[in-house]
Computed example of a mutant assay.
Amino acid sequence: MAIMGPSGCGKSTLLDALAGRLSSNARQTGDILINGRKQRLAYGTSAYVTQDDTLITTLTVKEAVYYSAQLQLPDSMSMAEKKERAEMTIREMGLQDAMNTRIGGWGSKGISGGQKRRVSICIEILTHPKLLFLDEPTSGLDSAASYYVMSRIARLDQKDGNRRTVISSIHQPSSDVFQLFDSLCLLCAGKVVYFGPASEANEFFTLNGFPCPTLQNPSDHFLKTINKDFERDLEQGVEDAFTAEAAINTLTKAYQSSDNYQQVKRLATEICKKNCGTLEERSRSSFGTQCLVLTRRSFVNMYRDLGYYWLRVAIYVLLALGLATLFNNLGSSYNSIQV
């Protein structure tokens, strides 16, 4: 499912609320139900990929995913099984050719931006979560890289047979990327403008007086119609029957009276009546294993990072030599100190 809308409409806030990651100073109303029950997301059943990549630049792709596998997967799995899970996940995201390439950062050349996004996704799907949250997974990528990343995510179900629900906030996807989504949630200023099958969104806009122009990307048309941050310049002779505010009100009311809205309410009621059971928390590695893996990873990072470790050693050595030269043959009496 794609969550779309203009900047500041509440995409990331909605995603954080569904994932249980809202800040403590945020106020939330309403209930979030999982399988019709009010319960928390158990460990290992969900994963969240943030918009910014937080990766250790000195590690290779294989090392980054393998260390994460040792930290997340339970001790009941052998080291060979964890390594196999890590390599399988890397292959799922099409990173097998970059397994031995360092991630890289500002000081060293590494993998591309699209590959970094896929590494972040690899780390999160190691536990085979049933629910995957993605916050702007195509941010900073060109159209080709965006399509490649999202197509890999869409094909995850076909790789290992584990059905996953993917919820992604995305900003102005290309037409090829938009076609990969099954459902669309269109927001504007916290209001739901449309929620239903992505393939029916164009028809919904057309029936309510906002048809998509020929040869134009439907997602661009949706965002342009409900964006009220930049009103059209009427002095240039562009006259429109509806302002952005009127368009939003028209589409919002139309959605609330549509069959999709009634179908969503019926489906939610049916799910609440079913006894789907609670989510069981998956086991994880022990505290001792986590300490050992983190210590080993820290030493590898310090050894390879010239600025983090070796440059500091050089500075400390030069500082010690300077102080030793300054106070050389000072003597050990009180008079020598005064002099």
Rank of each mutant, 00 (worst) to 15 (best):
Q216E: 11
I123S: 03
W106I: 02
G5R: 08
L251T: 00
R37N: 14
Y316G: 00
T45P: 00
E87S: 04
T101A: 09
E63M: 00
T89E: 09
C272M: 13
C212H: 04
I123Q: 15
G209L: 08
N25V: 06
S219V: 05
R284H: 14
L234W: 09
C276G: 06
D52Y: 04
Q216V: 14
P6F: 06
S257N: 15
V317G: 02
F204N: 12
D233S: 11
G105Q: 09
G161S: 08
I271T: 11
D220N: 09
E231M: 11
V177L: 05
N260F: 13
G277W: 03
N249S: 15
V293I: 15
I226Q: 08
G209F: 00
G105F: 04
Q263C: 09
T13M: 10
L187N: 07
E136Q: 07
D160F: 08
T57P: 06
L330K: 03
G36M: 05
K159Y: 10
S108L: 06
L292A: 15
N217Y: 05
R117N: 05
V119W: 12
T101Y: 10
I170T: 01
P197H: 13
L59E: 07
P173I: 01
T45A: 07
C122H: 06
Y194D: 00
D233W: 13
K11G: 01
I32K: 15
V65I: 14
Y66S: 14
R232K: 12
A17F: 00
D16A: 15
R155D: 14
E280A: 10
T29V: 12
R118V: 03
R163G: 01
M88W: 15
A324G: 10
S76C: 09
G288P: 00
G8D: 01
R152P: 00
